Simulated scan of single mutants.
Amino acid sequence: MASALAGETLEITGSSRSSWAASSFREVWDSPQDVFNQSSRRGKDDEDEELKWAAIERLPTYDRMRTGVLKQVLDNGNVRHTEIDFTKLRSQDKKKIIENVLKLVEEDNERFLLQLRERNERVGIETPKIEVRFENLSIEGDAYVASRALPTLLNSVLNPLEALFGILRLSPSKKRINNILQDVSGIVKPSRMTLLLGPPNSGKTTFLQALSGKLDNKLRVTGKITYCGYDFSEFVPQRTCAYISQHDLHHGEMTVRETLDFSGRCLGVGTRFDMLAELSRREKEAGIKPDPEIDAFMKATAMKGKKSSLVTDYILKILGLDICADIHVGDEMRRGISGGQKKRVTTGTCVVKIARKAKLHKEHLPHITY
């Protein structure tokens, strides 16, 4: 019986060895072929991409600015490169670009922003920076004091009458001069976050409104405010600086995405198209091939006249508003998003624009995630 068991053991061992040898031999025989197939497939994909870029480089500047390569990984693992026109983006192409960009943002948003900056710096284009200077800034206004400043029914009747009599010079005004800011000077350095601290009613809001060019016309301002040496009469400050109010004023019937899209279209793409044209020209002269995903994002966001921009989806992602993008903002009469989300929408409406500097109130600071 022992000999029989020994024979069975030897038989099983021998069969397992033979099967192992056969499988290992099959793996050794088949694996080099798979490796060669993968390398040849990868080389074919790279060659296809090079041909697409070579065809784009031969286009005129106007057409080259509107054409790019869209990289797509198929279900079978193959990579397909498609030449697309960003002025005629289909919904599926736009969805693919958004997926590629948001994938980079989810992995590391800072690395994505560094890639955008490195592309400009690689050809000698510096990212625009703004330095704000204010010298001897003083702001004062006229206001009622004591009981006349209260919002009572009597004051609501007397104040317009006194204003009318003052215009006709029949009665002197009972308003007193209120000095809000007096002889303030300083510099706001570029690429920095500056925190403004002060007690209540110290003029913080008035100061931020003055720097952003949104001060009330009834206030009297003396001093000088310059952006890189230019005062407000030489440019439009709203295209350069965004003031984010502490009051969340939105249209309740619009969704979060529609609100950001509308805000972005109010000022357009700005100088993004001109900068991209110069960037494309220098890359062509230097023989540099940009990253397809970064190039697709920059070209898609520089196109004019689009109802919806990729910048909106990007801002929705970094502000954590993608989960409520298609929900109505709401108001006192309509149910909508939460209060914290509404403050982030207020921040997003200014960030989605082309502003280089943003001035925020303390209520919005905890909601910035970048």
Rank of each mutant, 00 (worst) to 15 (best):
S156A: 13
V157C: 06
V157A: 04
V157M: 03
V157Q: 00
L158Y: 09
L158S: 09
N159Q: 12
N159D: 03
N159L: 14
N159P: 00
P160A: 10
L161F: 14
L161K: 05
L161Q: 06
L161V: 15
L161P: 04
L161D: 12
L161R: 02
E162R: 15
E162S: 06
E162T: 00
E162C: 07
E162Y: 13
A163T: 12
A163G: 00
A163W: 05
A163M: 07
L164Q: 07
L164K: 01
L164D: 07
F165N: 10
F165V: 03
F165R: 05
F165D: 08
F165H: 02
G166V: 08
G166M: 11
I167A: 03
I167S: 12
I167E: 10
I167H: 08
I167L: 09
I167K: 15
L168Y: 05
L168V: 10
L168T: 07
R169M: 10
L170E: 03
L170P: 01
S171T: 12
S171W: 14
S171R: 13
P172I: 03
P172V: 00
S173N: 07
S173K: 01
S173D: 01
K174I: 00
K174P: 08
K174E: 14
K174Q: 14
K175D: 14
R176V: 00
R176Q: 08
R176P: 00
R176N: 12
I177F: 01
I177D: 07
I177A: 13
N178K: 14
N178Y: 13
N178C: 12
N179A: 07
N179P: 11
N179D: 02
I180H: 09
I180V: 15
I180F: 06
I180T: 15
L181A: 04
L181I: 07
L181F: 10
L181Q: 03
Q182R: 09
Q182I: 02
V184C: 02
V184N: 00
V184L: 04
S185V: 03
S185A: 01
